[in-house]
Design a binder for these strands. Structure first.
Lengths: 65, 65
DNA sequence: TTTAAAGGTAAAGCACGCTTTACAAAGGAG
DNA sequence: CTCCTTTGTAAAGCGTGCTTTACCTTTAAA
């Protein structure tokens, strides 16, 4: 799974720490998701979508075959 | 997280075993998600959405406050 | 030059997502 | 009644999602 978290966050001028607060997760979690270490849980994906005002499918993309 | 998996599956007349095959997961996984034992991973949520031809947000709903 | 903010890595620990195997109960078909 | 399908539970095992703490590097401001 790819995601555009880093871009969306940059567009808004938010730090990783600030985004982590908005999402109610640790800064480590934001770093790990942005850098593709793992995918968020579904509930967290919903919070991310809400924070950025976009559908989940607009932020996360399945790896192409 | 609530989901309408059971209804969507019933509408199509599929067994849990058949849906599990379509999603490439075990039958146990389908049962557990339908019965709310846990939420699917994000990649699996994408496959579920694709199988039913609906956006993730149409199938899964965050618990209301 | 010192300080602070921002991004990153590492490692240990816990809970959850998913697997496999096995067993059980209910309903319909023969 | 017997057989098969469907749904469900239980339990053990593995990898991942997320946490906390600690430390490092780069950049910019005082």
């Amino acid at each position: 799974m790819n995601n555009s978290l880093k871009d969306l966050r940059a567009e808004r001028g938010w730090s990783q720490a600030h985004l982590a607060e908005l999402l109610d997760v640790s800064r480590q979690t934001v770093i790990s998701i942005e850098n593709g270490k793992y995918d968020p849980s579904l509930p967290l994906a919903f919070r991310i979508a809400r924070v950025f005002g976009q559908p989940i499918e607009a932020i996360f993309q399945e790896d192409e075959a």
